[in-house]
């Protein structure tokens, strides 16, 4: 995997510039410093991108999930040692429902996925604004926050949880029928259709699954800063899609996967972190990431150039 070498190389470059950079403590910090929530979101959107669709609703979805979680959590007692633990599954359910709605809007109303999800993202932002009135909900439960504060093998607990989630995502991708179907739909919607797959159902399920991962991202984000608010998902869209593309999953679908995304997130974060360490101005940092997407997103050879399909029936991607 060339991408992995890329991450290592980038790391080496920054450690030359600043010798502190590659210490284990630092690596753990790269891991936690905002990597995990966007990583979860990136894993979720990976499935969508494999299907050849796009989902831009993550910021709204994360905001809604975070706010709903925090609201229920605080309402039921505010600590995991009470019935408030129910807020965890509730958050996942909300994420799934959000994704379901997103998928249904896309498939049933035949709105291209980028437009449907973009709108749903705004709906989510609005919804969370409505729920919070612009305020923040604080979640200070020590047990819940132990995701951030407890360390095992030098890494915060949430890093281990995230690893587990990624393994599950990989299992879904490679060992389940729905995972296979994502690739089939992305590899050729017509073909999947002509093979008797219910493409619409697969798409809706894909968005639902992504919603579940967005919910996990929301949980990690809340655990990390102890606040649920409308801005909880801020910038996740750009970071997650950048990571997926940099990891090598093609935006036209059919290839790539969870491991690519993990590597992509690492590269983006190493570079991001490295740029802060080097003291690059903020606007330059964003510019560099933009360039990265352009470089990673272009077709490398002829075989990767998306074919133009004959438009017959609903063209949904």
């Amino acid at each position: 995997m060339g991408a992995a070498t890329g991450a290592r190389r980038a790391g080496m470059f920054f450690s030359l510039v600043n010798p502190n950079f590659m210490s284990l403590r630092n690596f753990a910090r790269i891991g936690i410093s905002m990597t995990l929530p966007p990583l979860m979101v990136a894993v979720g959107v990976t499935f969508i991108i494999i299907m050849g669709s796009i989902d831009l609703s993550m910021e709204g979805a994360v905001a809604v999930c975070a706010v709903v979680f925090a609201a229920i959590f605080m309402w039921l007692g505010g600590t995991l040692a009470s019935w408030a633990w129910l807020a965890l599954p509730a958050c996942i359910v909300v994420g799934a429902l959000y994704g379901l709605l997103n998928g249904l809007v896309h498939v049933k109303l035949r709105i291209p996925s980028f437009m449907a999800s973009l709108s749903m993202g705004f709906v989510g932002i609005g919804l969370s604004l409505l729920m919070t009135g612009g305020d923040r909900i604080r979640v200070e439960d020590k047990i819940f926050r132990s995701l951030l504060t407890e360390r095992y093998f030098g890494f915060p607990l949430m890093v281990h949880v995230a690893l587990l989630v990624i393994l599950i995502a990989w299992f879904i991708q490679s060992r389940t029928a729905i995972g296979r179907n994502f690739y089939a739909v992305g590899g050729g919607e017509e073909l999947a259709h002509a093979s008797g797959l219910d493409v619409k159902r697969v798409r809706v399920l894909g968005f639902m699954l992504a919603g579940v991962f967005y919910a996990l991202g929301a949980l990690f984000a809340v655990a990390q800063i102890g606040i649920a608010e409308t801005a909880t998902g801020y910038n996740f869209m750009f970071v997650s899609i950048t990571s997926v593309v940099v990891g090598g999953t093609a935006l036209w679908g059919g290839n790539g996967g969870v491991w690519n995304t993990l590597v992509g997130v690492l590269i983006v974060n190493v570079i991001n972190n490295g740029m802060i360490v080097m003291g690059l101005p903020r606007y330059l940092q964003d510019g560099v990431l933009g360039l990265l997407v352009i470089l990673a997103g272009r077709p490398v050879d002829g075989s990767q150039i998306p074919r133009i399909r004959e438009v017959s029936g609903p063209c949904l991607s």
Binding site: N18, N26, S33, M34, I225, Y234, I276, V277, P281
Partner: peptide
């Protein structure tokens, strides 16, 4: 550095400061 009034961005930048 500018963290754009944002909590998460501030956390990222602070983590990098600690690294550096």
């Amino acid at each position: 550095q500018a963290a754009d009034w944002d909590t998460q961005k501030a956390a990222t930048i602070m983590a990098s400061y600690l690294t550096r």
